[in-house]
């Protein structure tokens, strides 16, 4: 119930409005890229496919992607540039399993943060504020929980994380309460299993 109420807050309305505009753009086939003559450069389906390929491995070059998608290399470059402009492609990071680096003593924690939403800006103001701290790795607005924001923190030691929570997070004006959960081990991150057990077990030649 509480979650449902939250989703109808003002800030979220603004957000979904923006999404709605984008959705109508898509339906009109105007998926951000137009050729000089006004013809759509690459259809939506192909763009989605391109994004999935990049999400899987962002180091594939435009030439290879072009061959895979049966598009000239230049079209791929244009499409990627446009997707970057639109901030649909935000960044090209590597997924690193830091736990395999013995001398990387970082700890991660998830903090449940309960806040008071503010008139007109809802949760956005406090969420954006929390985002600014470099120690903060992720911030999500949650539904259906007894808290509002889920904040992922990284620190060198548990003490460092704990003191960030008590000194920086808990002291923010709209923060009502926090609960800290330390992450003991990462098994899967962003859809990728860190230790993949599905090897290729096929025989070398089969009919």
């Amino acid at each position: 119930m509480k979650g449902a109420k939250k989703l109808s807050g003002t800030a979220n309305d603004r957000l979904s409005n923006r999404n709605r505009v984008k959705e109508s753009d898509r339906l009109l086939g105007r998926f951000y890229i137009e050729k000089e003559n006004g013809v759509v450069g690459m259809d939506r389906q192909k763009q989605m496919e391109l994004l999935r390929l990049l999400e899987e491995d962002s180091r594939q070059d435009a030439e290879q992607l072009g061959k895979m998608l049966a598009e000239p290399k230049e079209e791929i470059e244009k499409a990627i540039a446009a997707l970057e402009d639109e901030k649909i492609i935000v960044k090209y990071p590597a997924l690193i399993n830091w736990e395999r680096m013995d001398d990387h003593p970082y700890v991660n924690a998830m903090i449940d943060v309960k806040v008071t939403p503010k008139r007109d800006v809802g949760f956005d103001e406090v969420a954006e504020r929390i985002c600014r701290f470099p120690e903060v790795k992720a911030v999500y607005l949650m539904s259906g929980a007894s808290y509002d924001l889920s904040v992922v923190l990284e620190g060198k030691t548990m003490r460092e994380v704990a003191s960030f929570v008590s000194q920086k997070l808990a002291t923010l004006d709209s923060v009502i309460s926090t609960a800290t959960h330390f992450i003991l081990k990462r098994y899967k991150h962003d859809g990728i299993e860190l230790e993949d057990r599905d090897e290729d077990r096929r025989m070398v030649v089969t009919p």
Partner: peptide
């Protein structure tokens, strides 16, 4: 093929 090392197989159906 099975008796060799380092084979890249395009033979798998």
């Amino acid at each position: 093929a099975a008796s060799m090392e380092g084979v890249i197989s395009l033979g798998v159906g």
